[in-house]
Amino acid sequence: MISFEGKTEKRSLMATAASMGLVIVILVFALFYIIFGHTLGWFASNDSVEAEGMQVAAANNGYEFVVQRTTEYDSLLNGEPKYEDVALLKSTLAAAPYHYDLTAVSTAAASKLAYELQNDAPFRDDNEYWYFLMPGACGSMTFYIHPFSSEGVQANMELTLGCFGVVIDENDRRVVREVTSENVLNMLKGHIIFFTERRVDANDPTDTDKFKYNGLITDGTISYDTTQHTPTTMTLNGEQISVYEITLYWEWPLTYYDISEKTGNTAFADRYPPELLTYMNAHRNWFFAVNQNSNDPDDLSDGYNDGDQMIGESANYFAAFISPIV
């Protein structure tokens, strides 16, 4: 093989490469390593690039997300979009830039992916099912972790909630913008709550009234150690890969009384786990838009309803974001 010891030799190599128009290519790849941090010793002609790269992600603890897309929110009804402003939402997501293409199953060429949240409690109107988020709705969010290494990965992730509202911009155009009001974002954390576990009724598994939850996500973090789980195989871009499925369960409790009366003393004793009450009392301003300091259930119920109203008036679309904590 070739020797890289001689300084002169190296220079002559670079000169040759330059004459062949390859320096640009080298720079491009150097850039790749800076961004993605794959250390490939045999090509590390630039020490500083290598060092910088290693800080971002070591080759054996990285992972990517894989999702499966559904197309309910792209449906048409009588030739019109069934869900108003979904095209506007997508153009806002695309500017972020999130990829939401329907056809691409893989994660290729996308650092950010957007896909539909699963809603298990549609309402029926005129023989048509509508998958809107609203008080009383519940569902799930599934994604897959694909570790880069067969040794597995300890994935620490952050769950954040956001929402998008339709506004008329300065040019009089109808646009969808991410809602930045802290009050509204706080209200999301108290009204659209996420769990890591859900049990269904054995005899009636689709009856959403019989769902029971556990594993309330209180601090917006999720940890998943793939070495403690069994992977499943999926075909991605024609290749068989091992992935780990993570499903989170969300619910928008219908009323304050649903929370106060359906929270059990132990996990799965009732619909909600005991920590929900602790969480609610620790973050009253996330649950109640008014009457936060009251202990009268009717006042709290009013406050919760006003919180629902605040979300509904501010937001046309909800989004749950998952990002790795590095």
Binding site: L22, F29, N316
Partner: peptide, 30 residues
């Protein structure tokens, strides 16, 4: 080597991307 890297690059890129997810749903207006 470079041409090998060019071939390999899309595969690495494919593994490296997709670092953030957004799952969206319409909200019923009250």
């Amino acid at each position: 080597l470079l041409s090998l890297t060019v071939l390999a690059a899309p595969v690495f890129a494919w593994f490296s991307f997709s670092r953030i997810l957004a799952s969206y749903a319409p909200i019923s207006k009250p």
